[in-house]
Amino acid sequence: MNHPRHELDEVIHAPVRFSIVATLAAAEKAEFAYVRDAVEVSDSVLSKQATTLEKAGYVKITKGYVGKRPRTWLSLTARGRTAFAAHVAALRAITEAAGDVTPS
């Protein structure tokens, strides 16, 4: 049970959720539409996956207005950042264990 894959986070591991969290990890906050385009998913898919991440305590969803236009912002919580860092460390350990060159 020592293989690094056991350290992977089940919530973050799903490809779309991983991309959402990876995007938010580099950002203080990001608009819903920006994340949707970056991750290349539909509004409904992003909404569903963001809600899953929110329920896990990894993502904070904030609604507001810019002028009269409604906007939704996504940001990573401290718990989400910690979980993502651990997940990335596990991914690196998997590639290193296999002798691969890890991306920077």
Partner: peptide
């Protein structure tokens, strides 16, 4: 895993 890291 390498592909996921590259995507990140």
């Amino acid at each position: 895993a390498a592909a996921a890291l590259a995507r990140a």
